[in-house]
Amino acid sequence: MKVLVVDDEKDIKVLFEQRFRKEMRNGEIELSFAFSGEEALNFLHNHDQEAVLILSDINMPGMSGLELLRRIKEEHHVPPPVVMMITAYGDADNYKTAMSLGADDFLTKPVDFVSLKEKLKAIS
């Protein structure tokens, strides 16, 4: 399963790689990273239909996670990738907006990798 992780925090890459060390080694998960919304869109354009799951931060400079979500849901119809929003803000507004834009799930930081892994298993 190809997963695209979008976050402006560079260290997210190291974290995910270490957290999914075993899954990556087993070939269960293939991780890609983008550090801004724009970068993520570029990736999706270049790697059409490759990413099954997109994990995106909301609060990013430039294109926000929510904008990215809207664009993804607009542009990539069939089959729509599963988009999970990750944010430090657990507030209702962000949650509602994300859900109305078609987000498949909503996670809050600090990320609970145990529950994330269970969600990923459910998808695949």
């Binding site: 925090e9 260290d11 430090a88 600090p110 990320v111 990798f113």
Partner: peptide, 25 residues
């Protein structure tokens, strides 16, 4: 507070997870 939450949750995210990862490692 929201700003602080974001700014603190992000590093906290790393602190928590890296420390957990470390114990696994």
């Amino acid at each position: 507070t929201a700003g602080i939450a974001h700014e603190i949750q992000n590093p906290l995210n790393f602190v928590n997870n890296f420390s957990e990862v470390n114990s696994e490692l």
